[in-house]
Amino acid sequence: MPELTWFAWAALAVAALIVGLSKTGIPGAGTIAVALFAAVLPARQSTGTLLLLLIVADLFAVAMYRRHANWKALLRLAPAVVVGVLAGVVFLAFADDAWVKRTIGVILLLVIAVTMLRRRFGAAVADDGPHRVAAATYGTLGGFTTMVANAAGPVMSMYFLAARFPVKEFLGTAAWFFAIVNLFKVPFSIGLGIITVPGLALDAVLVPLVVVGALLGRWIADRIDQRVFERLVIVFTVVGAVYLLL
């Protein structure tokens, strides 16, 4: 078990709660957990440790929203996501931590700007036509950012938001998306050495808090207004992007 101060443990505890909450109630908030883990642990260890907690939260999210997924949207995203993950593996092997974080921050801000413009002028992600380009773009960015920093939440939130999914469909589609992608990342993460024994020990302590956060997120999702939900997604996405830039 890594030796950490009480403040570091408190930060990780809050992050674990947010992991569960972000998967079942407020997508986009997970980037705050990424920030807290990166602030407390070495960059590579933080990525691997957080990945396993995300997978636990994914299981709860899938169990809660498994019937609400839009599989047509997921299948449309799949090829681009695989390309993005593989690109992320290569990038992670060579780029330093500071460059990775700032690159992702720029990407997120660009995604937010494009999404807001599309919503301002009434465009939505449709089932065919030019919006296949949007699926390819968001899918590639999502795969890349999730591999290098577990930071695809804001990217994919912007895509699902642009698709104008209702709250439950949004959460169900995101649940299956991240459950599949995060499991796909595990062999690469082991190969890169970012999943470690000390990280597993930390996960064992923090998992109960992930469960509490997931249950709290479900309670919120059953009561939240659609417009409030969308605004929270955007706010947390902006906060996460700014953090990664700074």
Rank of each mutant, 00 (worst) to 15 (best):
Tyr138Ile: 09
Asp127Cys: 07
Ala151Lys: 01
Ala98Val: 12
Met116Lys: 06
Met116Trp: 14
Thr145Lys: 03
Val106Met: 14
Ala136Leu: 10
Phe144His: 03
Gly142Glu: 06
Thr115Asn: 11
Arg120Ile: 07
Asn150Val: 04
Ile107Ala: 14
Phe144Ala: 04
Ala152Phe: 07
Leu110Met: 12
Gly153Tyr: 08
Ala123Val: 11
Arg119Gly: 09
Ala126Phe: 04
Thr140Gln: 02
Thr140Val: 08
Thr137Trp: 15
Phe144Arg: 01
Val155Met: 04
Phe121Val: 12
His131Trp: 13
Lys101Tyr: 02
Thr140Met: 10
Arg120Leu: 12
Asp127Ser: 14
Val155Phe: 09
Ala151Gln: 01
Thr145Gln: 09
Val125Asp: 07
Val100Ala: 11
Ala113Cys: 11
Arg119Ser: 15
Ile112Leu: 09
Arg120Gly: 06
Ala134Trp: 13
Thr146Ile: 15
Pro154Tyr: 01
Phe121Glu: 10
Thr115Trp: 05
Pro130Val: 14
Pro154Arg: 03
Leu108Ile: 15
Asp128Val: 03
Val106Asn: 06
Asn150Trp: 05
His131Leu: 14
Thr140His: 03
Gly139Arg: 03
Ala123Asn: 06
Trp99Met: 05
Ala126Thr: 13
Met147Cys: 07
Val155Trp: 00
Asp128His: 09
Ala126Pro: 05
Leu109Ala: 08
Gly122Gln: 10
Ala136His: 10
Val111Pro: 00
